[in-house]
Design a protein around this nucleic acid. Structure first.
Lengths: 197, 197
DNA sequence: TGATTTGTTGAACTCAGTCCAACAATCCTA
DNA sequence: TAGGATTGTTGGACTGAGTTCAACAAATCA
C-alpha cells in the first residue's frame, strides 16, 4: 500500500501533523489571527518556508479535519446504486460524511466557526471548499440527468443544509450529541424538494 | 433629504464613483489581480491611502453594483404582508432584487464571476456578502415563527438558488434576456420545500 | 484673523504568500 | 569510500493588501 522502502533524499524535518499540532495549540492560545506562520514553524522547530512544504496556506490547517472527511465524498457518491435517485445518493453521501462526527470528534473548524466570519483568509478558504464540493455534487447530479441550473441549485441547497446543521450542532455546545440528527433534519426538506426528477 | 448646505471642511478630492470608474477600467485592462490599489488611485488622481476613505477593501469595488441592489432587500422584506408566508415574502424580495438586472444591466461581479474562484480577496468578500444576507433572511424567517435550523437552512438554500441563477444567467452570455426567469426557476423548488410552515 | 472641521498625504509597519538560489542529509552506484 | 542524484530545508528578497498615525491642506465659521 503505502511506500515501505526507505525514501530517497534528505529526511523530512517536519510533518503535517507536527505543524498542525503546533498551529492548533497556538490558535487556542492566541487565536487564529493572533498566530503567525512564523510562530507555528518556530514551535515546530523548522523555518517559516517549510510550512509551505506541507500546507498551501495557513487556513488549510484550520480545515484539516473537515478536509479529510470531505475527501471521501466522491467515493461515497460512486457507491450509490444507479437505481437510486440522484438526490438520494447525495443525501446518503452527506449523511455518511456527517456520521463521522460526534461529541468525541468535533472538528476544530466547527468549534471555532464564528472565526470564519471575521478572518478574511478563513472566509476565502471556506468558500473554496464550499464551491469545490458544490461542483462535485453538481457534476454528479448532471450525470444523473439533472439539468445544469437545477443541479447547481440543489447542490448549493444541500451544502447549505450541511453548513446550517454544522453550525447548529456546534452552537449546541457540550450538550450536543451526534451531528447526524441535525444533519438529517436540515437535509430532508432539501432532498425532498429536488428529488422528484 | 440629503445635506444641501455647503459641507464644513476640506472638499473631497475623490468619490466612490471616481474610484470605481478608475478601478473597473483597470480591472478590464489588466484583470482584477493585475490591478493594484496604487494604480487605481493614481488613475483617479489621488494617493493610495485615500482609497480607504471610500472603500474598505479593493474587493468592495468588485461588488458595488450588487451591494447597491442587496441593500434594498430588508426594506423589501418589511413590506411583505404579515398574512403571506415567510417563504413567500423571501421569494418576493429576492425576485424584486433580481428584477433589477437585465441585458442592459449586468453587474460587473457577474460578468467576471469566474474570478471569484481564483482570487482570495474575492472569495472572502463573496462569502461575507452571502453570510450577511443569509443572517438577514434567517432573522426574518425566525421572526415569522421558523425554528432556527430550519430558518438557516432555508436562507442558505434560497441564496444558493440566487447564486446558481446568477451564474447560469451570466453563462448565457450575450444571448441572455432578463435574470428573472432563471431566478424564479431556481427559487421555486426551494420556496416550495420550506413553505409549508 | 484664527479656530474648527474634514479630508488628503506620506511613511512606516504587519503579515500572507511567492520565488529562487544555496545548502544539507540521505540513498545509490561505481 | 568517494561521487552523483534526490529530496527537503533554509534564508533572503520581494509583492501587495490592509492598518495606523501624525503632519498637512483646504474649506467654513465666528
Amino acid at each position: 500500500m503505502t511506500e515501505t522502502s526507505t525514501p530517497r533524499g534528505r529526511p523530512q524535518a517536519a510533518s503535517r501533523e507536527l505543524l498542525q499540532d503546533a498551529a492548533l495549540e497556538l490558535f487556542l492560545e492566541n487565536g487564529y489571527a493572533g498566530t503567525t506562520i512564523e510562530q507555528i514553524t518556530t514551535r515546530a522547530g523548522v523555518s517559516r518556508n517549510t510550512f509551505f512544504n506541507y500546507f498551501d496556506a495557513k487556513s488549510d490547517v484550520f480545515w484539516v479535519e473537515l478536509d479529510d472527511a470531505l475527501e471521501r465524498i466522491p467515493a461515497s457518491l460512486s457507491t450509490a446504486p444507479p437505481t437510486a435517485g440522484g438526490m438520494q445518493a447525495v443525501e446518503a453521501a452527506l449523511l455518511e460524511f456527517g456520521g463521522q462526527f460526534g461529541p468525541g470528534r468535533v472538528p476544530f473548524a466547527l468549534t471555532q466557526y464564528e472565526l470564519v466570519g471575521s478572518v478574511n483568509e478563513l472566509q476565502a478558504s471556506a468558500l473554496t471548499r464550499f464551491t469545490r464540493q458544490a461542483a462535485l455534487l453538481a457534476d454528479f447530479l448532471t450525470s444523473r440527468g439533472f439539468e445544469r441550473l437545477r443541479a447547481q441549485t440543489a447542490s448549493y441547497a444541500a451544502l447549505g443544509a450541511v453548513v446550517a446543521a454544522g453550525q447548529a450542532w456546534a452552537d449546541a455546545g457540550t450538550a450536543r450529541g451526534d451531528l447526524l440528527p441535525y444533519l438529517s433534519a436540515a437535509l430532508s426538506p432539501v432532498i425532498g424538494a429536488f428529488a422528484d426528477e
